[in-house]
Every structure is written in C-alpha cells, then in structure tokens.
Amino acid sequence: MNNLKKDREFQKIYNSGRKSFGYYSLIFFKKNDNNLKRCGFVVSKKTGNAVCRNRLKRLFREYYRNKEHLIKDGYDIIFVAKKTAGEKFKSLKYQDMERDLNKVLTNAKIFK
C-alpha cells in the first residue's frame, strides 16, 4: 500500500481531481503518471473525537487492504469520512462501510 503523505499531493488531487460520494464517505481521485495505486485517508476533527476518527480510518484502511486488487492501477485516491459516519461510528459495521465504498468506487469507475 503506497500512501499519500505530503500536503501538496493531497491539494493536487483536491483541486484537479474528480469526486464521488456515498452516505458515509466521499472519495477524491485522480489518474497519476507512474502507474501506482496510492491512497490517503482523511477524517476531520469535526467528525468526532479521536476514538471515532481512528476507528473510521481503520475501517478505510481495512477496506483498501481487502479490495486493493480490484482497484485499477494508476490512481491516487483520498478517502474522506463524512459527518454521518462519525455520528454512527459506534454502531457502524465494516459491512456497512464496505457496501457504501463499493457503490462509491463503482460510480467512479475505479474498479476493474
């Protein structure tokens, strides 16, 4: 798993990439030049406390780890948690997040 780390990498995707959204999440994505899959995970402080934010990031990472083989090569993807995910994080199951992200990535035409 290659991660996006630098602020300028995130800003480039936010400003010139495309986006797709679901009930719990929003993704920004952009085709990259080096044929690598790179990802970043963002959960705002407005979403909840540290426990909530860390749980949502863990759910995103687990989803990406399980579905990485289905994602097309050459994309930079930023997973962003929405406020609705933060409000329901105690009852939010991995299956709910998976269903939502499958829909989002299918709409974005990022799956193989």
Rank of each mutant, 00 (worst) to 15 (best):
M1C: 08
N3E: 12
N3T: 15
N3Y: 15
L4N: 05
L4E: 04
K5L: 14
K5H: 14
K5C: 10
D7R: 15
R8P: 09
R8W: 15
R8V: 14
E9L: 06
F10I: 07
F10R: 02
Q11D: 14
Q11C: 04
K12G: 08
K12H: 11
Y14R: 05
N15K: 14
G17D: 03
G17H: 01
R18D: 12
R18H: 13
K19Q: 13
S20A: 11
F21Q: 15
G22I: 02
G22E: 06
Y23E: 13
Y23Q: 11
Y24A: 01
S25R: 06
S25K: 02
L26T: 06
L26Y: 00
I27F: 00
I27V: 09
I27C: 01
F29S: 03
K30R: 14
K31P: 11
K31W: 09
N35Y: 09
N35L: 07
L36W: 11
L36V: 10
L36N: 11
K37W: 09
R38H: 07
C39R: 07
C39E: 13
G40M: 00
G40A: 03
V42I: 05
V42D: 03
V43T: 07
S44K: 02
S44C: 02
K45M: 04
K45F: 05
K46G: 04
G48K: 05
G48V: 04
N49P: 13
A50P: 12
A50T: 10
V51W: 09
C52F: 12
R53L: 06
R53W: 09
R55L: 11
L56A: 00
L56E: 00
K57V: 01
K57T: 06
R58W: 06
R58A: 02
L59G: 02
L59T: 02
F60W: 03
F60S: 00
F60L: 03
R61M: 06
Y63R: 02
Y63L: 02
Y64V: 12
R65K: 12
R65L: 07
N66D: 09
E68R: 12
E68Y: 14
E68L: 09
H69Q: 13
I71R: 03
I71T: 04
I71N: 03
K72M: 08
D73R: 13
D73L: 13
D73I: 11
D73S: 10
G74R: 06
Y75A: 03
Y75Q: 05
Y75L: 08
I77F: 00
F79E: 00
A81K: 01
A81R: 01
K82W: 01
K82T: 02
T84F: 07
T84M: 06
A85F: 08
A85I: 07
E87R: 15
K90Y: 12
L92R: 05
K93V: 07
K93L: 12
Y94M: 09
D96E: 15
D96Q: 15
M97W: 14
M97E: 04
E98K: 13
E98S: 13
R99G: 07
R99K: 15
D100R: 01
D100H: 01
L101T: 00
L101P: 05
L101C: 04
K103S: 15
K103N: 15
K103C: 14
N107H: 13
A108I: 00
K109I: 08
I110N: 02
F111E: 09
F111G: 07
F111C: 10
K112G: 10
K112D: 14
